[in-house]
Design a protein around this nucleic acid. Structure first.
Lengths: 196, 196
DNA sequence: TATCTTTGTAAGTGATTACTTACATACAAT
DNA sequence: ATTGTATGTAAGTAATCACTTACAAAGATA
């Protein structure tokens, strides 16, 4: 087969991982199937990643950089808190619906594996989102826009339920979804909680 | 080894499944490990269940009967809606914290497997909860206690986020949790949404 | 007591797993 | 042109998987 650089091959492999998970389920994610999907030999995969686990870890790092990075920019922007919250929520919903393979991977890996490093990465992804939401809410309270007596930690937890249960829904129903309405409807509910 | 009836053995096997998942992760759930945990031979397992998959299915049926059954009684009771909602939420939180093995199993199985019957069972568990919550809310609205303009479907979805994200938290953090505060704090947030 | 069904086990089965080894060749640097 | 390194493959490896087979014995029924 044609030769390509490791970085290109790594991307191909990671894409194939997500592809298989979404179309066939995590059970079918073997190095053998992975090689078939890309059209290369099984041995070649181990030229570009030392172990199968390292492929998963690399994907989770991508999520940290791309997804959480994007959310961090939104949360720290100078927009009014209400607009930040709206952008934040919609960005999350869009990411989840656009990357179904990734979300299934995160879910399953969390309960499937007992690897400490992996679990800690997943915990970070979850907690980072919670902290960024808390920041937006606290900013809104500081500006006098929202009720200062609300328990911010609990609202953030309730907020996190939105993407997480959306996730479950996506996994169970297999994909079809109408993001626009969902995003703004959920925002309105959260805003009612935040209202003075 | 001492002989026991199939029904007793089936319970032992199912308990061992949940035990392994919680202590060692789903990856270690092999028929070989299962037999070791119980202290019986691997072949004996297949005397009491035709396949490994059937053990999982039987556990999910237990969840339907025990957990959803309990929630159904609460939702259909003649208590005031606000009390039903409180009992409903606390029963869910307690079940999740008491049965960590089960919740991990449901999560993982949903994304791991592509078995249609299994996925449909999991979907039913999720949807039944949503429907029961919707019923309580609609009853409250009919009694004039809550805002009739709220989108019930979306509140139910937001509500479902509570147990689901609690679940994630339990999986990632490994167990320790203070249920009492959580239960009532979350209820207050939902009530603020429902308020006229 | 004799027989039949249920429950148990040890030792297999072939399939699949993640990963390795030995070797070939493309391509960049000298 | 020569050499060294990165990328490729086919054919392994031992371990593990879910499950089966052949046979033994417990316990109920006759």
């Amino acid at each position: 087969m044609a030769r390509k650089n490791t970085d290109i091959r790594q991307e191909e492999i990671k894409q194939a991982v997500l592809d298989i998970i979404f179309t066939d389920g995590l059970k079918k994610l073997s190095t053998s199937n992975l090689a078939k999907r890309i059209g290369m030999s099984e041995g070649s995969i181990f030229r570009h990643f030392p172990t199968k686990q390292d492929i998963i870890i690399s994907i989770i790092e991508d999520v940290q950089n791309d997804f959480i990075g994007q959310l961090r920019i939104i949360a720290n922007s100078s927009l009014p808190p209400i607009e930040r919250l709206q952008k934040f929520l919609c960005a999350t919903v869009n990411y989840l619906t656009d990357n179904k393979g990734i979300t299934m991977l995160l879910f399953s890996e969390a309960s499937h594996n007992n690897d400490a490093a992996l679990k800690s990465s997943l915990q970070q992804i979850f907690n980072n989102q919670k902290q960024l939401v808390s920041k937006i809410i606290l900013d809104g309270i500081a500006l006098g826009e929202w009720d200062e007596s609300i328990p911010v930690e609990n609202v953030a937890m309730l907020y996190m339920g939105i993407p997480v249960s959306l996730n479950i829904d996506l996994i169970l129903r297999g994909g079809e979804f109408h993001a626009d309405n969902f995003c703004s409807k959920m925002l309105q509910l959260i805003l009612k909680i935040l209202k003075k």
